[in-house]
Design a protein around this nucleic acid. Structure first.
Lengths: 209, 209
DNA sequence: CATAGACGAGACGGACCGTCTCGTAGTACG
DNA sequence: CGTACTACGAGACGGTCCGTCTCGTCTATG
C-alpha cells in the first residue's frame, strides 16, 4: 500500500500473506520495541519472504502504519465527529479520556510509539501519515471547537489550532516521552486548565456543571 | 562521560580527541541528520579510532548529549533563574521567544532532534537526560510559576506541572514533529491563550501591558 | 627514564539492509 | 480447461554499521 515501485498486480495479491505480515509487525513491535524491530524478523515471523514485504510497502514504517490501520478498522467505532452534547468541558474530557485509554492499551501503544519514531525519521512517511490520519483527526477537533466558539463557549479570538495543541499536545507529549503516568485525572486537569487558563479567575480548578 | 565500563584513566584522557569527536558529531548530525549518523562516520571525521569513542561514551546518544552540552557551555548565558520582572506574561514571552530562536538555529536544531530521537529509543539515555537537563530546567520553570502563583498572577489551584506542559509543550511538539513554522508569534499566542484560557473572558486575545 | 595506558587504525564476526534469483503455486485470461 | 503470468517462500548476495578486539605508537605520570 501507500506506494509501489514497479506496479505489482494488486488483483493477484495474497490477502493471507498481507494479514500475516501486518499481524507479525504488530506483535513484534509490542514484544521487542522499535529499536529491535527488523523487516527480516517480521518476514520470518509471518512466514513470508522479505521480497513480499518490499513488494508492497516502501518502508518498515509504512508496514506499521497499515498494521495500525488494520487494527483500528477491526472495530468500527470510528466516529465521523466528536461528541457534542452542548457541554464542551464534558465532551472534551470524554474524548481525552478515551485517548488516554487507547494510549495505555499495550496492544496499540508500542506499535504506535514505533510508528511515531519512524515518522520522525522519514519525511515521506510523515507526509503520508499527516495526510491520511493526523490532519483529518485535527480537522475533527477543530470542527468541534469551532462549534463551541459559535456557541460562545470559546473566546472569539482563540486560535483553534493553538487550542487543539493546548488540549491534545500535553497528552501526546506525556505519552511519547514517557514523562509520567497517563491517567484520566491528568486528562481532566489539562482540559480544565486549558479552558480556564492559568490566570486566577473566579473558577480555579473544577468548574461548570 | 555519563558512564564507563572499565574505568579508563580520566587523567590520561586526550582533550583534543574528545573535542574533535564532539565537534564531528555535531557537524555530521547537522549534515546528514540522525538517520545516517553513524559512530564510524563520527570517528573517521574526527580522525579518531572507534575504540576511543566506545571507551568514553556508552552510546551514540551519549556522544550527542555531551556534544550539545559542550555547545551550550560555549556561551555562559546559562541563567540560574528565569526572568522575573513582575510581569508574568512578558517574562514568559521573553523566555519562549528565546526558545524559538534556539530551536530555529540549525547549529542546535538538528543535533537536538537527533538527540531527541535517540532518547525515545534508549531508556537509559532518557533517564540520564531527564536527570541532568530536563528536570532541572523544569524546576526552573516551576519555580518562576510558583512565584507568580504566590504573587496572585496564577490561579491558586493550578497544577504547576500542567502549566509547564501547556506553555512549553506546544513549542516542543511543533518543533520535534515539524508541524509548522516555529515563530515568535506562535510563542506569543501560546502564552496568551494558556494564560487567558480558551473560555470567553473579558480578555480574548492580546491582554495586559 | 621507564612503563602503563590512551591513542589511531583497522580486522573481525554478526545483524540487517535492500536487491536478486531460484523453483513453486495459484490465479486470471484466452 | 489449459497455459502463461506473476506473486509467493526461501534464501544467497554485497553492503553498511555495529561493538569488540588487537595491533604498534605516543605520551605523560610516577
Amino acid at each position: 500500500m501507500t506506494t509501489q515501485r514497479k506496479a505489482p498486480d494488486a488483483a493477484r495479491r495474497n490477502e493471507a500473506a498481507r494479514r500475516a505480515i501486518l499481524t507479525a509487525a504488530l506483535d513484534l513491535a509490542g514484544e521487542v520495541g522499535y529499536a529491535r524491530l527488523s523487516i527480516e524478523a517480521i518476514a520470518t515471523r509471518a512466514g513470508a519472504g522479505k521480497q513480499t514485504i518490499y513488494r508492497w510497502w516502501p518502508s518498515k514504517g509504512a508496514v506499521l502504519f497499515d498494521a495500525l490501520l488494520m487494527l483500528s478498522e477491526g472495530q468500527d467505532d470510528q466516529p465521523a465527529d466528536l461528541p457534542d452534547t452542548g457541554d464542551l468541558e464534558a465532551d472534551l474530557k470524554t474524548v481525552l479520556r478515551a485517548t488516554v485509554d487507547e494510549l495505555n492499551d499495550p496492544r496499540y501503544s508500542e506499535p504506535m510509539r514505533a510508528l511515531a519514531i519512524e515518522i520522525l525519521l522519514d519525511p515521506a512517511l510523515a507526509a503520508d501519515f499527516a495526510e491520511r490520519l493526523d490532519e483529518p483527526m485535527r480537522e475533527l477537533k477543530r470542527r468541534r471547537l469551532r462549534r463551541a466558539q459559535q456557541a460562545g463557549d470559546l473566546g472569539p479570538g482563540v486560535d483553534l489550532d493553538v487550542a487543539v495543541d493546548l488540549l491534545w499536545g500535553p497528552l501526546k507529549n506525556r505519552w511519547l516521552h514517557r514523562e509520567g503516568p497517563l491517567t484520566t485525572e491528568f486528562a481532566d486537569t489539562v482540559v480544565e486548565t486549558a479552558l480556564n487558563g492559568l490566570r486566577p479567575g473566579q473558577s480555579s480548578s473544577s468548574t461548570s456543571r
